[in-house]
């Protein structure tokens, strides 16, 4: 990759909205992000997938100029965020995890203030506000104070506010956390619509597998501050051995049971989940299931539950990280992620 830096302008790869080069963030001795490299193409929805504490928010905060980069480079629309942060800020829209809209102001007032912060001329400002409120289906609520809105509506209002200056690149940090399933789906549909209508590049962080699967063109799996896999959801799923996952729980599995399961037809790997529960990755789901039932009957091991499903991003995550997506205690590393100012841990 050829990178030339001139006055903070990156002229390396054409057609790339975001380019991150070996980026590192350290808090004292703790390395929250450990040399991550990736590119985001123009017009794609790119997902950063990982558990809480994986480093997703730290990455997004570095890319959006909110925290300084310890080492490495991040380019937004060709602008080096360390050398030319203001230019980078002009082309991005950011929806942080926290609610950044003022809850005492109305949706329109919040949008108008942000448009002014970006220097959007009056006529364009008013047009943008009308269009965006229509797009997020909040026209009826335009003069409602944000504090009177439901969680889903607030999130939609935030998204509209983040787009009021027509950014090229849109960052969303866990936009559906805390929303009910219906509101989540509404946000996904709205993001897809906005992306196609406004030619947006979207970078989204999430710890929801289904969200990443449904929304993203490409996904980067982040764990412990490192990028462990990056590809399209389909490619990631096919990269995992087996097309199906058989999840089975026995009443009481005898010793050496995992090895016997591994010998079944089509089984490529067996994960012992504890409590006599096993996950079998197989290329032939139906044959493996039949063989499994037969084996259990022969061995007198009673099956408690049995499910067969296609490979999901959960399996991808397990495959690449060796465990389930978890809400890990970062304190285990003797470090607490610095909270947002004023937030008490």
């Amino acid at each position: 990759m050829s990178i030339r830096t001139r006055k903070g302008l990156h002229s390396g790869h054409q057609g790339q909205a975001i380019s991150v080069e070996n980026i590192v963030k350290k808090y004292g001795d703790f390395e929250a992000v450990k040399g991550v490299t990736f590119d985001v193409k123009d017009g794609e929805i790119f997902g950063l997938l990982g558990p809480n504490g994986a480093g997703k928010s730290t990455l997004i905060r570095m890319m959006t100029t909110l925290i300084p980069i310890t080492s490495g480079k991040a380019f937004i629309d060709g602008y080096d965020v360390s050398e030319n942060p203001d230019a980078a800020r002009r082309v991005i829209g950011v929806i942080p995890q926290a609610m950044t809209s003022d809850i005492d102001l109305t949706i329109t007032e919040n949008m108008s203030i942000y448009a002014k912060l970006y220097g959007v001329p009056r006529a364009e400002r008013e047009r943008n506000i009308d269009e965006l409120l229509e797009a997020v289906d909040l026209t009826k609520w335009r003069d409602a104070q944000v504090k009177t809105l439901s969680g889903g509506m607030r999130r939609r209002a935030e998204i509209a506010r983040g787009l009021v200056h027509n950014p090229r690149i849109f960052f969303l940090d866990e936009p559906t956390t805390g929303l009910d399933p219906v509101s989540r789906v509404a946000v996904w549909e709205m993001l897809n619509k906005l992306k196609s209508h406004r030619q947006l590049t979207i970078l989204i962080t999430t710890h929801y597998m289904d969200e990443a699967d449904r929304l993203c063109d490409r996904i980067a799996i982040v764990d412990h501050g490192q990028l462990v896999a990056l590809d399209t959801p389909m490619a990631l799923k096919t990269s995992v051995p087996g097309n199906n996952v058989v999840e089975v729980q026995f009443l009481k599995a005898p010793s050496g049971w995992a090895e016997r399961l591994h010998d079944l037809s089509g089984v490529q790997s067996v994960q012992d989940e504890g409590s006599s529960m096993f996950r079998l990755l197989t290329s032939t789901g139906s044959q493996t299931t039949t063989a499994l039932v037969e084996l259990s009957v022969r061995a007198g091991v009673e099956i408690k539950t049995l499910t067969v499903q296609n490979t999901s991003l959960d399996d991808v995550f397990v495959h690449y990280t060796g465990r389930q997506l978890r809400d890990e205690q970062v304190k285990a590393f003797g470090f607490v992620m610095p909270p947002r100012p004023g937030m008490r841990s």
Partner: peptide
């Protein structure tokens, strides 16, 4: 977090 919103603007 209101200021966080300001900080990502120019």
């Amino acid at each position: 977090g209101v200021h966080e919103g300001y900080l990502v603007t120019p």
